[in-house]
Amino acid sequence: MSGFLSSSIARKVAMALSALFLIFFLIIHLAVNLTSLFSEEVFNQASHFMGTNPLIQFAMQPILIFGVVFHFVMGFVLELKNKKSRNVKYVKYNGAASASWMSRNMAISGMAILAFIVLHFIDFWFPEMNHKYIEFLPEDPTRYFAELQHKFTNPLRVGAYVIAFILLALHLLHGFQSAFQSIGFNNKYTKCVKNFGTIYSIVIPLGFIIIALCHYFNH
């Protein structure tokens, strides 16, 4: 990688900015999903809007995919480079003495989240793209809720989703405040950011888990 992204700090900032973007996206995704708990109609309307609005489909969606791919690719590039920076390993290394498990295992939680995203794309996004842009099937603005319910009948899928969201929570517990530190935001508000980050990291994944479980038990 050359140019601006060749420096370690620039990469770190790029990781942080893509992370903050994804953190913001999670809120929107959760908000849409939450409507499915209260009203089939509102969920269908929200999904239809998200799925057909040209601004969202052709501007936001590509940006989001770029953000996801960038965050993963850069994350793994950095992880590999970091591994190489210690060519001879310690015989005894007590990492837990000075840093949290979450902060030391972002690559592991990241890989679990990647596996989840692949599953999630196979479940929802590929069928959706196929429906709209490949087979050009007729648009039924009420189909979304039934599709969602159908997906959450399989206990294995629900289990995988729950595990993935627990790992997402662990990833966020370090990642949220880390993103702020990376962009140079460390001041009198840092305590607030850390506390808010902890709440966010637990509440958002928990929200997704509750939605998955509700549909599983209520179908």
């Binding site: 370690s8 770190k12 480079k81 970091n82 990492g95």
Partner: peptide, 22 residues
């Protein structure tokens, strides 16, 4: 200084905070 740091082959910071503790 950052350019030299990168050239020396040090890794990238992921904000684990181990340095500050040690």
């Amino acid at each position: 200084m950052v350019k030299q740091m990168d050239e020396e082959g040090f890794g990238n910071c992921t904000n684990t905070g181990a340095c500050e503790v040690e």
